[in-house]
Design a protein around this nucleic acid. Structure first.
Length: 225
DNA sequence: TTGTGTTTTACGACCTCC
DNA sequence: GGAGGTCGTAAAACACAA
C-alpha cells in the first residue's frame, strides 16, 4: 500500500491496473474509519545543489509536503494533449477550467504543460538535428563524387601532357634530322602521325591552346572518347 | 525476480514580463 | 512583487531483457 500526503498528513492508497490505465484506490476513508488517524508526513529527500535552503523544520516540511506522484489517467492525458494541441501556453483562466474539468489541481495542469512543452521542444530539436544531418550527409556525398572526378581528371591531364611531350620530342628530332640532311621528310621518314583529325585543333601544341578552352572540359572530353 | 534504462510527474532555482 | 515561463533534476512508474 502506498501513501498520499495531503497537507501535513499522509493517507494510504493502493493502485490497480486496468489495461494500460492506473487506478488509484483511495484508502483514506478506511484509514480514518478504522481509527488509525493520519500518519506523520513522509519527508521528501532534501534536494541538493545551489540555493537549497531547506534547513529548518518548516522548510523541510514544506519540501516534504508535496503530494506523491500520481499517474494521470488516459482520459486526463488525452484531454490535456487535446488542449495542448490548441495552445501550448496556459493562461490562468484556462488552467482553472481544465483543472476543473479533469478533477486535477491547477498546479498539476501547470506542471503537465511545463513538462509537455519541454518534451515538445526536445522533439523539435531532434527533428531539426535529423534534418540537418541529412543535409550534411548529402553534401559530404557530393564532395566525395567531386573528389573522385578531380582524381580522374588529374590522371587524364597527366596522360595528355605525356602525349604532348612525346610529340614535341618527335618534332624536335625531325627538325634536327632535316637540318642535318638534304633528304626530304617524305623520302626518308615516316610522316608525322598526328592522332587528331585536322579539323580539330588538337594538333596544336598544348602550350598554344587557349587557356579557357583547356579548362572548358570539351577539350578533354573529345580527347579521350 | 531483479537489475537497468526510459518516461512521467513534480519541484526548486532562476528569469522575464506586466 | 507576483505570475508564469524555462531548465535541471529527483523520484515514482513503467518496460523489458536476462
Amino acid at each position: 500500500m502506498d501513501q498520499m500526503v495531503v497537507g501535513s498528513h499522509v493517507y494510504p492508497y493502493t493502485t490497480q491496473t486496468q489495461g494500460s490505465q492506473c487506478i488509484i484506490v483511495n484508502q483514506i476513508d478506511r484509514s480514518l474509519s478504522s481509527g488509525e488517524g493520519p500518519k506523520p508526513v513522509k519527508r521528501r529527500r532534501k534536494r541538493k545543489g545551489k540555493g537549497s535552503s531547506a534547513t529548518n523544520e518548516d522548510d523541510v516540511a514544506a519540501i516534504g509536503g508535496m503530494l506523491r506522484k500520481r499517474k494521470l489517467t488516459d482520459e486526463q492525458v488525452n484531454m490535456l494533449e487535446y488542449s495542448f494541441e490548441n495552445e501550448h501556453k496556459l493562461e490562468s483562466g484556462r488552467k482553472e477550467k481544465i483543472a476543473g474539468e479533469l478533477g486535477l489541481d491547477p498546479r498539476q495542469v501547470a506542471v503537465w504543460f511545463q513538462n509537455r512543452r519541454a518534451r515538445w521542444k526536445n522533439k523539435k530539436l531532434e527533428e531539426e538535428y535529423a534534418k540537418l544531418k541529412s543535409q550534411h550527409d548529402t553534401v559530404v556525398l557530393g564532395q566525395c563524387h567531386l573528389e573522385v572526378q578531380v582524381l580522374k581528371l588529374t590522371e587524364q591531364l597527366s596522360e595528355a601532357q605525356n602525349e604532348i611531350r612525346k610529340l614535341s620530342e618527335r618534332l624536335e628530332e625531325m627538325s634536327t634530322n632535316s637540318s642535318s640532311s638534304s633528304l626530304s621528310v617524305e623520302a626518308n621518314d615516316a610522316p608525322i602521325d598526328f592522332e587528331f583529325a585536322p579539323e580539330t585543333n588538337y594538333n596544336i601544341p598544348f602550350y598554344m591552346l587557349d587557356n579557357n578552352y583547356l579548362q572548358s572540359m570539351e577539350y578533354w572530353d573529345r580527347l579521350y572518347v
